[in-house]
Design a binder for these strands. Structure first.
Length: 295
DNA sequence: CACTCGTGGGT
DNA sequence: TACCCAAGAGT
């Protein structure tokens, strides 16, 4: 494609300068720890629900060392109803690793970030880019959708990230690190605010004139199977963990039995929570949030 | 690679 | 109202 950079990157950067949201983790006082916390919370969770949880978390644990000194169960409790509570456990484990291996400072190197619990390719690139202003391809669901439409002419990106998507993202990366970091945030913001999954606002899009998908008449992509929830183990796990979160201390078996009628599924869900280290069984038959990290 | 893992708001 | 799906990671 001829000069995709000028056709895509520059208009999106200009658009971002006008339309960027004032999010707390983008402000100058957001240090690398704050950025890391925001990225954990934003994994599969909308911004609007993260905002209050982010503020409360950092008020309680302003540095990795503060969190590392706590029991992991306290992280799970503070996580509240953000969903996917294993993230809380991994964020706690990351704080421990940062304290032990990096003197309590969030590392700047991509590989060191990637080695932290709960930090995958996206989060490592995002923290290196947003907190340390480095040059990395930051490929989240928003960017993948923007590129799928604007460049590939398809409504949705593939189910899982492909090598081709990474190649494309890297080919568009501005040479200057600061500019690359701004592009990362800008392309995500465009996907979040304009090039949305459901009802894209093409009239407000800075690259609509060159968007391959729009120019092709917005052909609908193949149907994608939705994630079912009602009646699954995930729902039962959520109900069980909610009881433990809201209790002050250990909870008797009967309190957990009350949340779901199917005893077999209930047992399977509870076993899963124990296996994940989210719940600790006591010798007296009661259960509690974990007091010590799983080794 | 396919599957699992929470929760709640938007359409 | 019933879906759809949201700054993914780990297995």
């Amino acid at each position: 494609m001829p000069d995709a950079y000028a056709a895509i990157v520059e208009p999106v950067l200009d658009w971002y300068a006008e339309h960027a949201r004032d999010l707390p983790w983008r402000r100058p006082d957001a240090d690398p720890w704050a950025v890391l916390v925001s990225e954990f919370m934003l994994q599969q969770t909308p911004v609007s629900r993260v905002l209050p949880a982010y503020e409360a978390w950092l008020a309680r644990w302003p540095t990795p060392k503060h969190l590392a000194a706590e029991e992991p169960g306290e992280a799970v409790r503070q996580w509240g109803r953000l969903g996917y509570p294993r993230r809380a456990l991994r964020l706690h484990a990351a704080a421990v690793a940062i304290t032990e291996r990096h003197s309590g400072e969030v590392p700047a190197a991509y590989e060191a970030l990637r080695a932290l619990p709960g930090v995958g390719a996206y989060t490592a690139a995002a923290v290196a880019s947003f907190a340390f202003r480095q040059r990395h391809a930051v490929l989240d669901t928003n960017v993948r959708r923007v590129l799928a439409r604007a460049v590939r002419g398809e409504e949705h990106p593939p189910p899982s990230t492909t090598a081709g998507e990474w190649r494309l993202a890297e080919s568009l990366l501005p040479a200057e690190p600061e500019r690359a970091a701004r592009w990362a945030a800008a392309s995500m913001e465009l996907g979040a605010l304009v090039c949305t999954a459901r009802a894209p606002r093409c009239a407000d899009c800075p690259i609509a004139a060159r968007c391959a998908w729009r120019l092709a008449g917005k052909p609908p992509g193949p149907p994608r199977r939705g994630q079912s929830y009602a009646g699954t183990d995930r729902q039962v796990r959520g109900l069980l963990l909610a009881v433990l979160r809201e209790a002050d201390g250990p909870v008797p078996q009967a309190a957990l039995d009350a949340v779901w009628p199917d005893a077999a599924q209930r047992a399977r869900a509870l076993d899963g929570l124990v296996a994940d280290g989210l719940v600790e069984p006591l010798d007296d038959g009661r259960y509690r949030l974990p007091a010590s990290p799983p080794r």
